[in-house]
Amino acid sequence: MLRKLCKYEFRSISRTLIPIYIAVIALSILTAISFSINKEYKLSSYYPVDMSLGYTLHGLFKGVMSFAYFAVMVALFVLTAVIILQRFYKGLLCDEGYLMFTLPVKPWQLITSKGITAFVMSILSCIVSCISIFILIMGALPYPLKTLAEFFNFENWSMFFTRLNEVVPMWGIYLFEFIILVIVGSFASLYQIYASMAIGHLAKKNRILMSVVAYIATSMVLSFIGGIFGVFSAFSIQNSIYYINAGEVFLHALLIFSVVISIIEFVVFFIITERILSKKLNLE
């Protein structure tokens, strides 16, 4: 059942996001092209400043492309966030809730399907923006193909990793811990949003406003708790600073500790959301 829920959720989200992804990639290619045309033109030009019509038009083209690119990148992030909010609010707490909450599925399955699809879509949005930046850099470089060849050169990478192993022998573990932190951290923030909307749903009216209030309140509680732990960990570093590899130990401890905190946040927010939608559901 969870798989089926995710299937419809992906369909619903991708309907809006995939056109944006295509627009971002297309615009970054166009922008990259606009930067790469006439790259050597200035060098070969006799005059220091070219006032010809072609050059001015090209400048205009570059300007417009850069602006369009910037706009579409902003749209990508704003839309991803808005859609994640909207899929939960409209898909569960408004009229569509009448369909979803009468399906033979448990509320936790509904909530989980929302979280999984939102997470995957955020990751996709990040990947698309990375690809687009990569395309832009390629366009701005003087010899993109040569750079690209170097980028995919195995020897360069093996040199890089050899150096990395010398300087930071534990980099693999750091990377692993960091990726885990990003994943659980994303889920924790997603479910903080969901829990806030569920808490807002308890109000009789002004539910959206109450959701915003709930989000601010939970954020304040979180930063307060985080602050307390920060103070304690500062004291513990003071005591451990005499050890040889204190820095490394501290970094590991910090990463693992953040992972644990994020998992706790995620679980608490998930339970709040699930309990409210199971026991206190009251669709308008």
Binding site: G97, Y98, P104
Partner: peptide
């Protein structure tokens, strides 16, 4: 029980 109940609400409930 949800799997044996067919429910038509008093509003549009399909996306």
């Amino acid at each position: 029980t949800k799997s044996v109940i067919s429910y038509l609400p008093d509003r549009m409930f399909i996306a």
